[in-house]
Design a binder for these strands. Sequence first.
DNA 1: TTGAAAGCGCTAACAA
DNA 2: TTGTTAGCGCTTTCAA
Lengths: 353, 353
Amino acid sequence: MTTIQDVARHADVSTSTVSNVLNGRADRMRPETRQRVEAAIEALQFRPSKLAQQLKTGHTPLLGLLVPSMSNPMYGFIAREVETFAQDRFGLRLLIGSTYRDAAKEAAFFEDMLSHGVRRVIVISSLADERHLERAVERGMSVMSYDRRATLGQKTGVGHVTPDNFEAARLAADHLIAHGHQRLAFVTVSGMTMSRSDKIAGFRAAAEAAGLSKSAAVLDGGTLDEYGDSVIAEVGRATGLQLAADPKRPTGIVALNDLMALGLMAGLREGGLRVPQDVSVVGIDGLFLAALSNPGLTHVQMPIREMAHAMVEAVATDGAAPREQLFSQVRLVERESVAPPPGPKKSPSKARP
Amino acid sequence: MTTIQDVARHADVSTSTVSNVLNGRADRMRPETRQRVEAAIEALQFRPSKLAQQLKTGHTPLLGLLVPSMSNPMYGFIAREVETFAQDRFGLRLLIGSTYRDAAKEAAFFEDMLSHGVRRVIVISSLADERHLERAVERGMSVMSYDRRATLGQKTGVGHVTPDNFEAARLAADHLIAHGHQRLAFVTVSGMTMSRSDKIAGFRAAAEAAGLSKSAAVLDGGTLDEYGDSVIAEVGRATGLQLAADPKRPTGIVALNDLMALGLMAGLREGGLRVPQDVSVVGIDGLFLAALSNPGLTHVQMPIREMAHAMVEAVATDGAAPREQLFSQVRLVERESVAPPPGPKKSPSKARP
DNA sequence: TTGAAAGCGCTAACAA
DNA sequence: TTGTTAGCGCTTTCAA
């Protein structure tokens, strides 16, 4: 491996001179010297070891990203946006880890990041508390958390970026209501997270505003095991199957997210129901896969890219970018999974009971 | 930050003694000494800096993974398997990069890996030549390439793991043929890669064996732009739409991969055709998403996890594991996207012309 | 059984 | 304008 010493020798200068050209301090030397150094670098194909640079400076151009599972298309998309932006804009490479929603794995990731000298981490966690994140901050890390609001009135070193989950679910429920649905349901999985409760609140607010509180239910489809990605679709499918067998089922359903909505549609179909003729479904997220489903899934699009960029900016510019952000640009994308409710119902225009 | 010096001072020993307990050489000291050191480590919450260790030893417990795009569910799945296995089995963390199928980005990734001291890299590349990989090997890297066979008779430092693409496509085409299809097509995108040509060969072999060569076509759906993941589904959809308008269209289609198959089905549907009543579709890959589509996508399942593990093993054990492997355990998973061809056709049992 | 010391490749005072 | 030098935190001879 070529070192800075080799270059110095080759160019007949000292290592500090080489270091100076490496670090943009070429003004401190004669142009001729600089050229000799550059020629030597080129000739020897010298690439400074980031390892050594890091050891010396304490900084490493690495960004840590912790997701529940990389194979979940949603997290995959976020990861891609984070990686591309971090690299193009700040020259940061991405160190990624899947936690499978396991606290021990999450803690181990932080330990490793620390010992690797990584001081910037973005976390998508569904863990109940944030204490391990706080501890990382105390140890000198800059950490941004996705999809969790800051706990009210609690000062923290951890920054937060989150979409407007309340509004997203409200929009989804409203869309169903506007089509005349009166028996509504929000389908989720076991375990309450901040974003889930925000969505539920949004869903309930829409129902209430339409005077439908009594016929709006929140359905818990079951537990997510460690692999939480294809699994969430499975939970959706099981729920769909169950719903199909229930004569008092809702006619309009808001799903926790797109993957669950896709599973739900599959389950409903397996149970002999048609979407949207028998049941309407709305997802939340904005996955491109929603455009491929049959029927195309109507969903609420979250500003994923913007949020990914905001998180990168926050950890990369330490302090210069806002660390608490709510992204409210959620919008409904209409496809074919929503229609008026079936049967002898009033028409949408006079749907109020 | 706590250093080995702090620990040594706290335990009243030398740094070498601390280093010895850190590296499992506790036999070289009195149990009492060892205990003092361990107590100090615990008390100070000391975690050795991997940075410094790396600089000294030249090894870093990092694995590089280069994929075309992390947001492609297929690559996301591979990435997850690679990461989990590398971490659980070898304690390796994952440094990941998306290339968007761009040669410059790919080269830059290798440069960075090198300067970070990363010596193990797994690459999923669709670039035409492998010279940049060879160069990395020459510079001391251990690299495994996915989905590309070694070029025949060319000795190389780059290892290869690939599924049996020929067999996968053959299986898919055979399945269609067994259902009585006579007008077959393989739908792909522009640009030939090794795995694509293997699939095409397998498809053709099946057609030929059934005496259907003349009515088996290879369709190029168009170019993949830099974002090649949702895009491949778009290409599929466009192709489906086009096919729907063609009265001489094939009745049985093998898609390059599952994502393309999903897009194809959406396009066919948009064009007014029903799958499988009008056109049958078979995918290749084994994405869990295929189970959610409507109709459920029949596809050929590749042994992704096994291949991911094999690649990790090959780079992690340098030399101890085989570096050239073909995974032949491909199998057809039947769902609902295949049926006998429509119209006044012979029945499947006497389909041979 | 333990410690002193050299050095991995680099940066950045400080000197010259 | 250029060079000398002291580390960054660790591992590993070699000596005591």
